[in-house]
Design a protein around this nucleic acid. Structure first.
Lengths: 342, 342
DNA sequence: CTGAAAGCGCTTACAG
DNA sequence: CTGAAAGCGCTTACAG
């Protein structure tokens, strides 16, 4: 049972496929095709269960109505939720999405971009790993639109939807300060990622503004692919009573760090917030039901995803060259729960 | 800067594109093309940064090297992790994946399958919503391979990778029985999904085998799109001391139910496992750090994803008609933590 | 108002 | 060993 093509319909009715194409693409009016024939075409199309061959359309028009999404890891709920929003907004406009997880590995993202470049996607939404500047730069010189989310490269001019990470960390740190914490630590991951840098900078600025010296020993920088043990070691170092740099609060820059961190803190028999207060970026379910529900910096994932798609599609659809570059910075909100005391 | 095509390379060297195509597709030996020309073609291809147009290839060969993935919700970590495994195994074989979230809504999955059917994918991996029997049946009569994961329809013969849900629930319930619990409840979602039915059946059988009568009042069936409040009401009913059907343990059939359930239990001031013991299906991070880390039925997500892709690809690649239908049932394991006491 | 024709970039029988 | 040609299923100038 072969799929029915435009030609099948045309033959069936003894007309040209041009005509059929016009009718099926809603251009009947434009070419003033008789209503009579229109309804007949539509009837036969339905009867033969005609489905346009999108690949053939794609070859002819150069458009596939597909968006390429490259994020660190679709299994990470942060990106999963983002992916969901992107999918939803894209579907609303008749677009599909192909996704790839780069694992923060620039070699992977390079291969993934190359793969998608083979005329498969009309545009990209990318959360670029560190050391992928060259890839993004190359993209910005090409003519396939793209928008960056979650991270950007200051030296590259391109569409981007970010969150005010500096402000978010500043507020979170301030929240801890207002509750009387003075020895606030920051646990983060490799600072080659601009969003992570901004967070730590915001944290430092809040301390400075409160006339508290920044202690480098209170800033723990773990590799991206950290495991329980690495986090546990950092935590142990921060909460050890005899340690010269004992902390009374921790700002976690990612929820993966935070979840592992809480596990370690519990394992050490310490109580949150009595022994140590906690704030974390991102808002996974885990934080709602853990021993002491965690105060978090909540990112507007819905808005990030939606806006990214909208900007991308407006660029894809414009025919008069590249549009104006858009840099959008969204605010986060601090959701206060119990992990900082009161 | 137009993309370079086969023709560009051919012209550049004064040969035919047939030749270039052969060389680039590794058929040089087969057609005994001189090494000399081979290296030249390869050189020019590199120099001109030739990228094959996959859409054109797709139109010609009828293959897109793309897998369509339809699951309930990519933002749900269960499906996110599954998606990640599928992506990874697919990439290993040169395949990409397009994903769609059906929200357990058969109308959505119908539209998503139709969309993908437009010659866009070589095969599907589907977690079908209830009432989508007709869609799967139609698929099984077509000639695009597919494999079902997580749920199946007993009356439809097709490839499927499942987990032994009956056995899993049986063991989980048994675990509670062995620890002395006698009034074990089951909180689950709409039982039109076979995997949910199997879980509840396993639960019932374990009770029967222990000579404990099954009490329908201890089985709470919530709609798929339940919110905190609905779960809270069910929990309240189960733990109310004056209630005739007070429970001393709960088996949650999904982690979404479990997470909401734990929130409700905490809000009521009850202690896990002292006041009530808990076992849940699935193994989200949340269960590791909550007040009393939760004993869970862990599904082999890696194996499910990997096997699904392997079976699908072997079907896609066979030219001699449909292969033998494969029904694979994997075992789960019970990860014992603290939520059931000891 | 409608049709014949070209062409998107490939692959692959066919011919020599 | 290599090339000319057909054709996958569309869209869209062009002609009448």
């Amino acid at each position: 049972m072969k799929k029915t093509s435009l030609n099948d319909i045309a033959k069936h009715l003894g007309v040209s496929k041009t005509l059929v194409s016009f009718v099926l693409n809603g251009k009947a009016k434009e070419f003033r095709i008789s209503e009579d024939i229109c309804t007949k075409v539509l009837e036969v199309a339905k009867e033969l269960n005609y489905q346009p061959n999108r690949i053939a359309q794609g070859l002819r028009t150069g458009k596939t109505n597909t968006i390429g999404l490259i994020i660190a890891d679709i299994a990470n709920p942060f990106f999963g939720i983002l992916g969901r929003e992107i999918e939803q907004e894209a579907a609303k406009h008749g677009y599909r999405v192909i996704f790839c997880s780069s694992d923060e590995n620039p070699d992977k993202s390079r291969a993934q971009i190359a793969m998608m470049q083979q005329t498969l996607v009309d545009g990209y939404i990318i959360s670029p790993p560190k050391n992928s500047e060259d890839q993004i730069l190359a993209l910005s010189k090409g003519n396939v639109p793209f928008v960056l989310i979650d991270r950007y490269f200051p030296e590259i001019e391109c569409n981007q939807i970010m969150v005010d990470n500096f402000d978010a960390a500043y507020k979170a740190t301030n929240h801890l300060l207002k509750l009387g914490r003075r020895r606030i630590a920051n646990v983060t991951i490799n600072l080659d990622l601009i969003n992570m840098i901004d967070r730590t900078e915001g944290y430092k600025q809040a301390l400075r503004d409160a006339n508290i010296p920044v202690e480098e020993s209170l800033i723990k920088i773990l590799p991206f692919s950290h495991d329980n043990k690495l986090v546990a070691r950092a935590i142990k170092d921060l909460v050890n009573k005899s340690s010269p740099h004992k902390a009374d609060a921790i700002l976690f820059s990612t929820s993966k760090l935070g979840i592992n961190g809480i596990e370690s803190i519990s394992a050490l028999g310490l109580k949150i917030p009595d022994d140590i207060a906690i704030v974390s970026f991102d808002n996974p379910d885990a934080y709602k039901i853990c021993v002491s529900p965690v105060t978090v910096v909540n990112q507007p994932l819905k808005e990030i995803g939606k806006t990214a798609v909208q900007i991308l599609l407006s660029d894809i659809k414009r025919s008069d060259g590249p549009g104006k570059i858009q840099k959008i910075i969204l605010k986060t909100d601090l959701i206060i729960r119990k992990s900082c005391g009161s």
